[in-house]
Write a protein that binds this DNA or RNA. Structure first.
Length: 256
DNA sequence: ATGGTGGCGCGGCCA
C-alpha cells in the first residue's frame, strides 16, 4: 500500500469523469469515496473496473453512499456500525492487501441541538466502540473519509465565527479527540503543513475563491501505519475545475 | 438580505 486517498464527490454520477481523471493522474492504491448518491443498481462499476480498479460500494437513493476503489481486491466487507440499525449508507470497511480500510461519511449534524446533531453524536459514539474492536483485530488500520468535524481552530478559516457551531462544537471535537486518544494519528498533522489548508469550502458566497474553508476530511492511521507514512496533502486541483465537488481529495503516502 | 450554491428530482430536503 503506497498511496491511499479520500474524496467526498457529492454525486458520483456528476463527478465520475473527474474521478477517472484523478485516478489516472494520482494512481492511488485505494480511493475512498463519500456521497456517491447512487443506488447500487446505478453504480458505474464498469467504468471504474475499466480504469484498473476493483470496487465495492454501499449506496442508497439520493443521499449518502460510500465506495472503495482499490488496485487489489477488497475482502471482509462491512457496511454497518455494530449496534446501529441505520438505512443511511455511511460505512464501508474492507481489507485490501493486508490493510484494514474503513471509509466513513460521518453525519453532518445540521445544527447544534437538532435531532440530526444528536444522531451525529450517537453515531460517533458507536464508531468509537467499533474502532476499539477493529484496532484490536487489525494492526494496520486506516479510517478515512468525511468526518464533518474540524478538529482544531487552525482547521477553520474563521475560528471565532465558527466557535461552537456545527462541525466545530465541543462535543464533536471531543469525539474526534477521543479517536486520537485511542491511538489513531491524524496523517495530515504528522507533517508540517501550510497554514489555512482546508478540504471543504461552501459552494455559497465564493467560499473557495476566498479560501473560506474547513478541514473536515481526514485520514486516521493506526500506529503501525503511521510509522510508515511519508506524506499527507490535500489536492485542491479538482476543486478548481468546472462543476467541482465542494470537497477536495486528501492523500497519504507510505513506505511499503 | 435569516440570504447564498449545488445535487436530486420536480417540491423540498440536505449539505
Amino acid at each position: 500500500m503506497r498511496k491511499i486517498a479520500t474524496w467526498n464527490v457529492n454525486s458520483l454520477k456528476v463527478r465520475l469523469p473527474q474521478v477517472l481523471d484523478w485516478l489516472a493522474a494520482e494512481s492511488p492504491d485505494v480511493l475512498a469515496l463519500q456521497e456517491t448518491k447512487l443506488q447500487d443498481a446505478d453504480f458505474p462499476a464498469g467504468a471504474i473496473r475499466a480504469a484498473g480498479y476493483e470496487v465495492v460500494f454501499a449506496g442508497q437513493k439520493t443521499y449518502n453512499g460510500v465506495a472503495l476503489l482499490s488496485r487489489e481486491p477488497a475482502d471482509a466487507v462491512v457496511t454497518e456500525l455494530p449496534g446501529l440499525a441505520d438505512p443511511q449508507r455511511r460505512v464501508l470497511g474492507a481489507t485490501v492487501a493486508g490493510v484494514r480500510v474503513l471509509d466513513l461519511y460521518v453525519p453532518n449534524g445540521q445544527a447544534v441541538g437538532s435531532d440530526k446533531y444528536a444522531y451525529k453524536l450517537d453515531w460517533l459514539a458507536k464508531l468509537a466502540a467499533f474502532l476499539e474492536t477493529e484496532r484490536a483485530a487489525h494492526p494496520e488500520l486506516v479510517v478515512l473519509g468525511d468526518f464533518n468535524i474540524a478538529p482544531e481552530d487552525r482547521d477553520v478559516h474563521d475560528p471565532e465565527a465558527w466557535r461552537g457551531q456545527i462541525l466545530c462544537s465541543g462535543p464533536e471535537r471531543a469525539a474526534f479527540r477521543g479517536l486520537l486518544d485511542a491511538g489513531f494519528r491524524d496523517a495530515f498533522r504528522l507533517f508540517e503543513q501550510p497554514p489555512k489548508t482546508f478540504s471543504w469550502w461552501d459552494y455559497r458566497g465564493g467560499g473557495f475563491r476566498r479560501n473560506h474553508g474547513l478541514r473536515i476530511d481526514h485520514i486516521l492511521l493506526s500506529p503501525a501505519l503511521a510509522a510508515r507514512c511519508r506524506g499527507c496533502r490535500i489536492d485542491t486541483g479538482p476543486r478548481r475545475l468546472e462543476r467541482p465537488s465542494d470537497h477536495a481529495p486528501v492523500l497519504a503516502s507510505f513506505d511499503t
